[in-house]
């Protein structure tokens, strides 16, 4: 496969890989690295044999990120990042933009599995069948996990907001 062909093939979903990686790894740099890593693997692999390149790439990204997270945990490194700071006094100052940031923080504090599902469903708008393929789970389990995640987000967000209004 020629390079140009490859680039046009991956273009529609390259940013999806990046966003998924960022959801999992939080830091911009690590997400960029993960994306490059996955694209390189795709480039080296015989991509003609993949039925759906996007689903394949998403699965690879998911696996790569989970490996990274596991490696970090076993190295006893805390998963810290400097993309944003935790400054609650500032939070109250810029409310409208800040509420979005609160949502992001809540989502990023969810368990890995729920984070993956939220990302794929809410942001990338995948059908349940597609999510099932990427995550290698059955659809019922995905619905249950998604429902749980949505409720947690709703509750936590309400909690933080009421707290701020007191």
């Amino acid at each position: 496969m020629k390079q140009q062909e490859f680039i046009t093939l991956i273009k529609p979903f390259k940013d999806k890989l990046y966003r998924l990686a960022k959801r999992m790894l939080i830091s911009n740099e690590e997400a960029e690295d993960a994306t490059q890593e996955v694209l390189l693997k795709l480039w080296k692999a015989d991509t003609n044999t993949f039925k759906s390149m996007e689903a394949m790439a998403m699965t690879m990204t998911k696996n790569y990120c989970l490996d990274q997270l596991k490696a970090k945990r076993s190295n006893n490194l805390s998963i810290t990042h400097n993309n944003y700071s935790d400054n609650s006094s500032l939070e109250n100052q810029i409310i409208s933009k800040d509420n979005l940031y609160t949502v992001e923080k809540i989502i990023n504090s969810l368990p890995e599995q729920q984070r993956l599902i939220i990302q794929l469903r809410e942001i990338e708008e995948y059908e349940f069948a597609e999510i099932a393929k990427v995550l290698d789970m059955n659809e019922t389990a995905i619905r249950v996990s998604l429902s749980r995640a949505r409720k947690i987000i709703k509750e936590k967000f309400a909690e933080i907001n009421n707290y701020g209004n007191k």
């Binding site: 390079q3 490859f6 680039i7 991956i10 390259k14 940013d15 890989l17 990046y18 966003r19 960022k22 997400a31 960029e32 994306t35 490059q36 694209l39 390189l40 480039w43 509420n99 979005l100 949502v103 992001e104 989502i107 809410e122 942001i123 990338e124 987000i153 709703k154 967000f157």
Partner: peptide, 19 residues
Amino acid sequence: VFGYYNEAKKETSKENILP
């Protein structure tokens, strides 16, 4: 919450394609 999902969709990778 929905506002965030709409925003999050727009984020893009800044890096060039690797090969």
